[in-house]
Amino acid sequence: MHGLINRAIQCFVRDTYGEDCWLAVARDAGIDPPRFEAMLTYDDTLTDDVLAALGASLSKPQEELCEDIGTYLVSHPNTEAVRRLLRFGGATFEEFLQSLEDLPDRARMAVPDLELPQLELRECGRDLFCLMCKADHPCFACALLGILRTMADDYGALVCLDFVEKGPGRDLIKISLVEGTFAEGRSFELGAGL
């Protein structure tokens, strides 16, 4: 797994539950030294071990944890860069949804060895979208759900999100857009991130 993803999990634990919690999770998962480097690549099993140790330590199902990680990624001040990069996807939540298919390619423009799962968006009715997440790891789709939920708030859109199907390579999220501009949303000015 790419270090950026492992590092995101580490930062999520540190920023949400504190450094001590992370050190305990790292110890339980056998991560020594207890840190992930964002620009290195790690064995996939390490990610699983960390998520398992975290789930055990917090007594939380992994799916819930992964959704929390998704929320964290686009709402915490320490990961503002991620929110900003996603907001480049479009001026409205609907445009943002349409841009998700380009996300793996866009990510590769910045970090060539970062492999994100392929995403496919289909309109399956009026204001109704189905997002297919072709990931091997179940964590991606759950994190994606957290990201979508939080980005909808970011755009000020009112949406309902749900899994229609789950499974490796065929996670399907149904998105019904109740109102595109329900609230003000957070501001996004170009050039403000630099």
Partner: peptide, 12 residues
């Protein structure tokens, strides 16, 4: 897109 790339590359 250029601004996106600059921000993404700066973060990386």
């Amino acid at each position: 897109d250029m601004l996106y790339l600059i921000e993404a590359k700066t973060a990386a």
